[in-house]
Write a protein that binds this DNA or RNA. Structure first.
Lengths: 340, 340
DNA sequence: AATTAACATGACAACGTTGACAAACAATTT
DNA sequence: AAATTGTTTGTCAACGTTGTCATGTTAATT
């Protein structure tokens, strides 16, 4: 029941084990005849090269996905995107949830890299905004690709996948404006969170190009959670005059906003329009369904993985590349067209 | 910049590399004095044993989590539970989403095992119900732990973590009964799905011990999705007399049921009570919040991982062990107490 | 026919670790 | 003091692969 090795194949085929190695790795300089014979023996024994031994002579074929994010949809979509790319290229994925506030991340990653377990890392916000961490990993000889919010890569420390939250925030705010809304609140602002910041910047830009004055009183800070959405909306509903629309910084907050509005016997969207951001499964499971911005997480992650794997395989492209994603609006049922 | 090896440490400490190996692995038979010196050198060089080389001499210290489940909360919770156990024991996790209907799973797993990448597998439903797959993996010399629905392990092919859906289904049905409901529908039955089957069995048991006749017309088959919940509830609302309560097979279906009821201007729970199953984040984000059954996915998964790791480490326990989980009711706001 | 080049194959070391065994040393018993 | 035991340390092979280099074979050129 022991696993066949390259030597078993060689013995069966009557060639040296090095020749088998050549066949396995598709090197040239092997005659058709021998190649066929070896291939036959490989199938007969169901031989599979021992990855561990391969990695010892070459380089790790595993990457790590490091995240600090309570949003399971986001994580799963990212993970699936990365995985699909890994499968194509014969790489493996090591998952590493973490607490970005602790120094532990650094230690854990250093250990995975130092022990030759992985050769590269995909970083998502807020980890991806930590240049100190990135430099540290780079010094450890690891490859790094980061996913960031922004309309361009901030530097060329490492290849970057950037997602244009600013533009998307502007788009969805413009949509509300077009529907006749004049008093639009923004909830879920987190100054330390680049995506949140970007969405707010887009909101401000859109209002700035309209004739509407920005009212800082209806821009509320808060977490990216349902509970926080409820809380912020409660606060908001006390303001006079009451906003006619709410731009929630993500779908979960938006779901909370709907819940809170409902508790006050307000109709959504007739009495209050609410938009989300991300197009998570949530947005289709609220009542009414959310108008939101589609964020193709799996595609974003796949792109990051593709970059990382290229980097590890040393595809001749010395300079770190970067790539940007623009996001699209998806109109559903949570925005009311005001008559006027 | 090259990573230090055991030999570098040995040279620095002035001992043989084998002695360093002994210190690293905490073997006895090393004098305090030498041990301390070596330890100092290890720290100085920041030496970390090369996992790849270790695995070559010992056994893989990675396990795979294989799932075929569209429910991200479930997957993430499972994953986190497994990961927490892996961390403790110094194991790594390889993630493997799959399509259980394809033969590909078998091939992929065979490859991961055959190439020495992993040494064990955690299987969730429906993969865990596939005895043919389990036997296949066992023949490949892999260790297997499966997570199943049931009130006991069905056989001792492999250690099993079983979750008592029957008992839980009975509990929550009894809760509805206690609240005075006499016409209770069951939606989301999937005959091929053991959990679903178990929950329905619990429902039947509960009704059987009450004086209420089971009406097969209000037991509806369907998928575990929001959309299916909407659809089934629409059908249900046509039945005469209309049920006063719905037992949805999971929270997502229940969320769909609430949505559908709402569209018909029915109040939840006053006009119709709805319960879910799983206690996913969903259940706290519907309006009203769902009464449901708490399923401690992370704990279940952690237990499975602990079993698997024990198995791989050959902790002397020849016979496969098994472990069962009982589930508890969580009462929230979606059940109405009928007066009578 | 002899020389060269190109191709095909094989021998062997190396990767960094652990396990089996042997050697050296110290402590205890005869 | 010699013999026995036990503890500490070292030597070497092995794990399964790939890289380097040498050798053998064939075809092309002189």
């Amino acid at each position: 029941m022991k696993k066949p090795t390259i030597k078993d194949v060689a013995k069966l085929a009557g060639v040296s084990f090095k020749t088998v190695s050549r066949v396995v790795n598709g090197e040239s300089c092997v005659s058709e005849q021998v190649k066929n014979k070896v291939q036959l023996c490989i199938e007969q024994l169901n031989y599979q090269p021992n990855r561990t031994a391969q990695v010892m002579r070459r380089a790790p074929k595993s990457i790590a996905f490091v995240y600090d994010n309570p949003n399971s949809h986001y994580v799963i979509e990212m993970q699936n995107g990365i995985l699909s790319e890994c499968r194509k290229k014969g790489f493996e994925l090591v998952i590493h949830p973490t607490d970005s506030h602790s120094e532990q991340v650094k230690k854990d990653l250093a250990s995975m890299i130092g022990t030759n377990l992985i050769g590269g890392v995909i970083l998502t916000p807020p980890l991806s905004e930590n240049n100190q961490l990135i430099t540290y990993l780079l010094n450890l000889d690891a490859k790094v690709v980061r996913i960031l919010s922004g309309s361009q890569a901030p530097d060329n420390l490492s290849p970057t996948i950037y997602v244009d939250d600013i533009n998307a925030g502007q788009k969805i705010t413009n949509h509300l404006l077009t529907c006749g809304h004049k008093r639009i609140a923004f909830i879920g602002h987190q100054p330390s969170h680049m995506s949140s910041e970007g969405r707010l910047t887009g909101y401000r830009k859109a209002l700035a190009t309209s004739s509407i004055q920005i009212d800082e009183n209806i821009i509320l800070p808060g977490e990216f959670t349902f509970e926080s959405g409820v809380e912020m909306t409660n606060k908001l509903m006390e303001k006079k005059p009451r906003p006619t629309a709410i731009f929630a910084c993500n779908d979960e907050i938006a779901a909370g906003a709907i819940f809170a509005a409902r508790l006050r016997n307000l109709r959504v969207p007739e009495d209050i329009s609410i938009v989300g951001f991300e197009d998570s499964p949530f947005s289709r499971q609220t009542w009414p369904k959310l108008t939101t911005v589609h964020q193709p997480n799996a595609d974003i992650a796949a792109k990051a993985a593709a970059f990382l794997i290229d980097l590890m395989l040393d595809v001749p492209c010395a300079k770190p590349k970067s790539y940007g994603f623009q996001l699209d609006l998806v109109e559903r049922d949570s925005v009311f067209q005001l008559a006027d």
